[in-house]
Design a protein around this nucleic acid. Structure first.
Lengths: 122, 122
DNA sequence: CATCACTGACTACACATGTAGTTTCATTGA
DNA sequence: TCAATGAAACTACATGTGTAGTCAGTGATG
């Protein structure tokens, strides 16, 4: 069971999933544009993630290199599962149905998904 | 924009979406099995939901009748959108792909979704 | 009419989260 | 060697959340 990751922490994870290891400053630089967090905030989030053992730290002189300990796929799988369980009774079909009805699916999306499903069966 | 509903609050909403209006005691009875919350806890959650104007109250003698003010579909749409945005860059296809790869989709699911998509195009 | 039970209102409290400020320690350049 | 700099560690603090306890009022009941 992957520990719960908050929204802000998730932003940090995305950065580390894209490239790792990174130092706190490097992570801060990479989220600065999108979120405008201070370096301190980023450090706090990194500490919390490390405390949860979701990322690992490796000492590099006087600073740390941070790397994910959880695969993005594994994390997404867990979160998706929880989401589908909680809101759609664990069934994916109603979710897709819902997205479709809410016009969240373009014709292109539909074609893509059909293609995907065709491959799955093969 | 529908106010943020917490996990515990969501449980209450599911009950009210199933049947409304209900009194606090009736709601408590209906969640008791699943969650084992005390009546007081349920009342607190109802108050918070009412404060957010997600449910409405109607005085009925000395007690209240509670009813949802937000449609389940509207709520699901909002939450789904946020979820897909945050984790899958707003694209539904990767979500479905992910669930598929994570073996969350049975053959029956796949058939159901294909059927659904066929209808959508018609 | 007096009392009791039930109901909403108010209060509580620990932990999570978003968002930092402050302190301390080590490194490095002068 | 000593001061400045940069990094982690520690502290802070308001708000949200889960989970309830207590209080006060009102309608029902004997």
């Amino acid at each position: 069971m992957v520990e719960r990751i908050s929204d802000a922490e998730h932003e940090i994870m995305e950065v580390l999933w894209q490239k790792a290891p990174l130092t706190a400053t490097e992570v801060a630089d990479r989220v600065a544009d999108a979120k405008g967090w201070s370096l301190q905030t980023v450090k706090t989030l990194l500490s919390r993630l490390a405390a949860k053992a979701v990322i690992g730290t490796e000492r590099d002189g006087r600073r740390f290199q941070y790397s994910p300990l959880v695969e993005r796929d594994a994390y997404l799988a867990g979160v998706s599962r929880k989401f589908v369980d909680r809101l759609f009774g664990g069934k994916v079909t109603p979710l897709v149905a819902h997205l479709a009805e809410a016009d969240e699916l373009s014709d292109d999306d539909i074609r893509e998904i059909e293609e995907l499903l065709r491959e799955l069966k093969a």
